[in-house]
Amino acid sequence: MHECGMHDNEKKNIIAIQTLRNSIMGSTLMATTSILLSAGLGAVISSTYSVKQPINNSVFGAHGELMVALKYVTILCIFLFSFFSHSLSIRFINQVNMLINCPQDPDSVVTPEYISELLEKGFTLNTIGNRLFYTALPLLLWIFGPLLAFLFSLTMIPVLYNLDFVFGCNKQGKTEHQINTCGDCESQ
């Protein structure tokens, strides 16, 4: 009976470590994408390539030198901050990965509370990095004009809202803003 409990605990430990590893991989992908887009934008900003003036600036937006520079620099800064947030997230989650199995010593600085704080910082920075990245996507379309940026923002708001809020159900089948822990609404 005791071995079964230990075996279950080992499975939970493996799942926890795999979850941390997957979070690190996701942050690495986002950080890499952010820095590659930053490098590409940096190359565009520093090149002598010029965009032709569109016929109708009211649809495509202003393409004067100052406005184009403002658009590129804004997007570049957002991608750089996204990269910075994801890099720090990777750092904190890697620390958690290494410290999570340290032996418990009452005099040690490494306590479960300390590890929990590191984990929270890592996931908070990951969320900030993702939000910055998502903010930069409509701004990329801003290069081509305000109409595309506005339309993309309108479509992105409901998507992000549904990602942020999980709709669960209570015992009467009424929808609530919570994590769905009761299973399918139809089954109750």
Rank of each mutant, 00 (worst) to 15 (best):
G5C: 13
N9T: 13
E10Q: 12
K12E: 14
N13K: 13
I17P: 01
I17M: 15
L20H: 02
R21T: 07
N22S: 14
N22I: 09
S23Q: 10
I24K: 00
I24F: 09
L29I: 08
M30F: 08
A31I: 00
T33V: 03
L36E: 01
G40V: 06
L41I: 06
G42N: 11
V44K: 07
S46I: 10
S50W: 09
S50N: 11
K52S: 14
I55T: 15
A62P: 00
E65N: 04
M67S: 07
A69Y: 04
L76D: 02
I78A: 02
S82R: 01
F83H: 03
H86K: 04
S87Q: 04
S87V: 02
R91V: 04
R91E: 07
R91C: 09
F92R: 02
I93R: 07
N94P: 00
N97L: 09
N101W: 00
N101F: 05
P103V: 07
D105P: 01
V109G: 08
V110T: 14
E113V: 10
I115N: 08
L119P: 02
K121V: 02
F123P: 02
F123H: 12
L125R: 11
T127H: 15
I128H: 05
G129P: 02
T135Y: 13
T135N: 07
L139H: 07
L140S: 09
F144R: 08
G145Q: 10
S153F: 11
M156C: 14
V159Q: 14
N162S: 12
V166A: 13
K171W: 11
C182R: 04
C185H: 02
E186P: 00
E186H: 06
S187M: 08
Q188C: 07
